[in-house]
Design a protein around this nucleic acid. Structure first.
Lengths: 143, 143
DNA sequence: GCCGTGCTTCGACAGACGTCAAGATAGAAG
DNA sequence: CTTCTATCTTGACGTCTGTCGAAGCACGGC
């Protein structure tokens, strides 16, 4: 899968372009190109199985999960799960890394944060926007 | 359109259930039902035309736009625009109200805020999360 | 009443999507 | 090297989706 990682970086870069520093949907109309880029991500999340996969990976211990962890949850064949993971990968939402026999997936919180920032109308003092696509954080604190 | 407004309220209620007070994707795995509800909204946003419609409406003066404002932007037939608006409506993302000859659409910022809240991992002090969810916007009469 | 305008619904069609079984590939263990 | 396990790719199938033209509704104006 490392073959298409270039494309996935490209997705992230394109999305960063769309989001800019902080341009929510409600501020100004999206251009045709911007809407295509954004829609690609939303379409990837527009399937129940893929959404569950995303949350399974994101909430799994260590922030990563191997395919074997994911397959058992669904009544779906292996190839189907693999297909959905590929869609998520190509949308830039997750990355996969092979370690020995298993392939571990993890989400890209930067992308989720960017998409989230596009939606909220005014971004009053939303810190998600500034976050610069570096390390993943997983600073889950409960209050 | 007033015929299905009941269903649209239902969508919002269901989504509020999913989001709960503040449950991001990364905190715990989505249930099958939750993922179906959420995916419905993302799927509606997973088309470039619909995303542009959404941002055109959201960013239009007064927070609303009539279909005539929207049709000219695209190289698409009237029925196609109408179809996309219907999808957005049934996902609970916009509402439509007839005033005289024209029908005006406006977005539901609550729903955008809810969806946005689901995506961001920790929501450190994100005010979008607390959203009231009580009052509904348009008192359109049934039938 | 009648007509014109704005918007939606209907019916149809090509293309995209989700799913599976079967085959292919990569690594680990004999 | 051979075999076994985990995962991906391919090819096929039925269903869903985006699009259009034509027809239908709801107004306002005559």
């Amino acid at each position: 899968m490392s073959k298409q990682d270039g494309h996935e970086e490209q997705v992230l870069a394109a999305l960063a372009e769309v989001v800019g520093c902080c341009s929510p949907l409600a501020r100004e109309p999206l251009s045709a190109d911007q809407s295509v880029e954004l829609a690609r991500v939303f379409k990837a999340m527009g399937d129940p199985v893929r959404l569950r996969l995303l949350s399974l990976i994101a909430s799994h211990a260590g922030g990563e999960a191997c395919v074997c962890d994911l397959t058992d949850v669904f009544d779906l064949s292996g190839p189907t799960i693999s297909h959905h993971l590929k869609v998520l990968r190509e949308a830039g939402l997750i990355t996969g890394e092979r370690r020995g026999t298993w392939i571990y997936y993890r989400v890209r919180p930067e992308l989720l944060a960017q998409v989230s920032a596009v939606l909220v109308p005014a971004a009053p003092d939303n810190p998600a926007v500034v976050m610069p696509a570096g390390r993943e954080a997983l600073p889950v604190v409960e209050q």
